[in-house]
Structures are given as structure tokens and as C-alpha cells.
Design a protein around this nucleic acid. Sequence first.
DNA 1: ATGTGGAATATTGTATACCAGCATGAATAA
DNA 2: TTATTCATGCTGGTATACAATATTCCACAT
Lengths: 254, 254
Amino acid sequence: MNNRDRSPSLANARVRSAPEAARAPLPPSQPSLAPIDAAPSFKHKAYAALKNAIVAMDIYRSRDDIRLDERKLAQDFGISRTPVREAMAQLESEGFVRSVPRRGVYVVRKTRTEVIEMITAWAALESMAARLVTQTATPEQIADLRKMFATFEGDQVRAHLDEYSEVNIEFHQSIIKLSGNRVLIEMAENLFTHMRMIRRKTIVEKDRVDRSIRDHMKIIEALEARATDRAEVLVRDHALGLAEHVKQYADYLD
Amino acid sequence: MNNRDRSPSLANARVRSAPEAARAPLPPSQPSLAPIDAAPSFKHKAYAALKNAIVAMDIYRSRDDIRLDERKLAQDFGISRTPVREAMAQLESEGFVRSVPRRGVYVVRKTRTEVIEMITAWAALESMAARLVTQTATPEQIADLRKMFATFEGDQVRAHLDEYSEVNIEFHQSIIKLSGNRVLIEMAENLFTHMRMIRRKTIVEKDRVDRSIRDHMKIIEALEARATDRAEVLVRDHALGLAEHVKQYADYLD
DNA sequence: ATGTGGAATATTGTATACCAGCATGAATAA
DNA sequence: TTATTCATGCTGGTATACAATATTCCACAT
């Protein structure tokens, strides 16, 4: 009683030449011959285009419902509804849009509670990532983290609060990437994308930025010292501090 | 220069009567008139059916590639390819299948490295969840955790190693659910589903089960004592211990 | 003025048809 | 026997047509 017997429609298990090409890394001998997939399907293109559009939209500026028209989008992209729908479905599973049957597809605005939950999840992922970084990252990789703040010394910060916000996110994303754990990386990617959308609405005060930079430096020092537990605590508390800040002052949400 | 100007096809922002019906709870005055959703679309049905089938398939028994035939499945379900494809796409984004262009859709087998990464991510999520539980859960909720092991005292364990494995997963899932953080819950759900698939192949030894139960009891005690940091450490180390075990002894993967 | 009915409209959900590309294997040549 | 060519078939990707249903708005009766 193997799989074939039980579910004849499902399991057509055969010993085939496995789809190596798609999974295997490059053969070391070949000089990077064909790393290209060369096949970004319409679905992927539509997905990327839509995601970029949504992220760039500053959706928290207004409270009006923002609807996405499948057919219009398909027309504008010059493709059919099918790949657009597939892209929409993926965006929905990632929490960016919400499809209401026979109503339309709407861009999702996160509530304050949801934002806090996302930040908390991010704290969980990044604090674990910090642990891993202290155990596996090279000194050079950790050193690169410092460079990110080289341009933000002293009063530079006040002049470029906006840019700092992006560097801030990149810093945290870098830590997670340095962990080398693909599951962590992928999970965090969605969270960070959402955070980038809210960032514009988050009032950045000079005090918080100063404190933020100090926190970051302490984190880097802990990573360099390979202090696993200390790095974890610092990263976690830094993120949870932001969550608390949102909880108290982010009235503009909801 | 607002959104409407820049991307006329994207943002048809209008002030509409928001889709209340789908979001709002029942009006307290009405006696639960129409709570029915009544519309599990074919897409959702196909998704559920496929996911159940995949989870129940014991895919790690053999090494043969398992291919899913869109057309055949559609025929067996009595529906068209479209909803089947949509279900497949979602399963792919969740890491259960992998679609290779012009080759077919294959069920994914996680490598040992990937399993370790998943367990590590799980450790991150659950240890944060444990912190939250110590801060927000009611005593009754924590007490329910104890009941899960009521049937597994003494030598009961040896006789029902298989069932214990499921209770084990449910215990950890319960902790995450008790956190009340929907983001954590959703992220962990996928991980647990994958773990359930691998569970069958994981050799459960008596010693490890005994130690596991002891760990669980310590975790429950920490939660009851509202010892935030201690609960976090216990949960994290418990999960990472499993990761280490897989790293050393799970040769059957890859 | 207001409430009601219903047709027109607009939307997603689903089915079907078509397409392009790769794998396969038979046919053929060496 | 072995290597090579090439036609065929099967695959997922895409386009399009159709179905079902919620919404909207206007005519019309009250």
C-alpha cells in the first residue's frame, strides 16, 4: 500500500532526472555560466511591479479605501488578468492587500495593534539572528555594520532624519541577513517591507534617533565581542522599545 | 502631486462605504442572524484538499520525486485548472511545493539544513511567545498546558511514542497561540505544518522523550511563576536542543 | 419627501482555449 | 552498437470567455 495505490491522482511518483538545474548551485568549475533564470514570468513581473507600487504609495496618508482594479492593471501592464490575479493572490497571502469577494481588492492598512505585533515578531527574529551572528559571522561582516553609520555622525543626523530612517531599517535587516538563516531572512523580509510603509508616518524625533544610534553601537560591540546573550538582549530590547513607543504615541494609526 | 496623479491606474481612492460586513462583528441586537460565510471558494477547497494530501503523504519515506499534475487534480476534484493553480501557487509560497517551468510541480522535501533553520526560527518565535505568555495569559490558560500531558505519565509514554509526538507539537503550538500575537501565530503555523511532516521520520527515543517532558514541565512552571526571562531561555534552549539533535543524528535527511 | 423594487452595472470567480518550450524517444546515420 | 537528429507530446504560462452575485441608482408608488 504505497502512495500510488492510495491516491492515484496525487502521487505519480517516478524516478526522474531530478530538476537539478533549478536547485543546485553553480558548478565550481564553470565560470558563472548561466546563473540567470532568464524567465521572469509575467506573474513575477506583475508581482514586483505591484509590490513596488504599493510600497511607494504612502497609504497611511489618507484614510480612503484604496482599491486595485484587476482589469485596469492588466490593461496598463499590457497583459491579461490571469498573471495579475496570481500576483494579487501572493500579495494577499503576504498581507499587503485584501480581496473582498465581489467587491474588489483593497490595499491593507495595518492597525496599531498589528504594527505592534509585527515589531514584536521582528524582535523575536532579530534577537535570534543576533545570537547566530555572534557564532558564525566573520569580523569583516560585523565591521561592515559600522560603516552604515559613518555618514551619520554628529549633527548630520538632524539634517537627514529621513535618510537615517532607511539606514536604520537596513541595519536591522543586515543583522538578520548575517545570520545566514534563510527562514529567518525570508520571514523578516515581509515584516521589513511593511515597516518601510509605516516609516513615513512615524514621527522621528531627534532624541529617539540619538538613543537609537547609541543602541546600535552597543549592539555592534556585543556582536564583535561575540557576546551571544548580551547581543540578544540588546537587540530584543531595542525592538521592543520601538513597539512600546508605537503603543504609546502612534495615535495616527487605527 | 498626489497618488491619483502619479499612478492613475493604481489608486482609485474613493471614500466608499467600507466593506463593513466582512470585518465588523455581529450587531449585538440582532440574534446572530447571518454569521454564515457560506462561500469557501473552489480555490480554498482545493488548497485545503491539496495541503491535507501533501501532509498525509509521508513524503520522506522515499526519495522519488513526487509530481502533482494540475490537469489530473483538476479532473479529480471536478473543477478547472484555474483554482487548482491558485492553490498550487499558495502552497509554493508556503514552501510545500515547487513549480519548475515546463517540468511540473513537485512536492518539496526539506534538507537537513533547512530543517535546522526552521527549528531555529521556531525557537525564536516561541521564546518570544513565552515572554508574552508570562505577561498576558490567564492562570487558567497556563493550567491547560499541564492537562496535555495528563495521559502521558510514567510508562504510558513508551507505549504511545507516536501519539506523544503529536501532543508534543501541540504543546509548543499552544504556547505560541497563548501569546495572542497573530503574527507570531501565523508564522509558526507554517513551521509546525512542516514539522509534522518530518515528525514521522524523526526517530523518537525514550530518553529524549523523558527529557522533553521534564523540559516541558519546567517551562510550565516558569510560565506560572511569570518568570519572563527564565521562560524564554527554557523554551529557546529546548528548541535549539532539538536543532542540535537533528544536526547530529538526522542523516536520513538530504 | 421617502421608501421600495428592479434593472443595469461592476466586480471577482471559474472554465476553457491556445501557446511556447523542453523532454522524450523513435528513426536514422555512422 | 552507438551517437545524433528531429518530430511529437506533455508541461506550465497566458489569454479570453462565461458565470454568479453584490452594488448602485433611477423610476415609481406611497
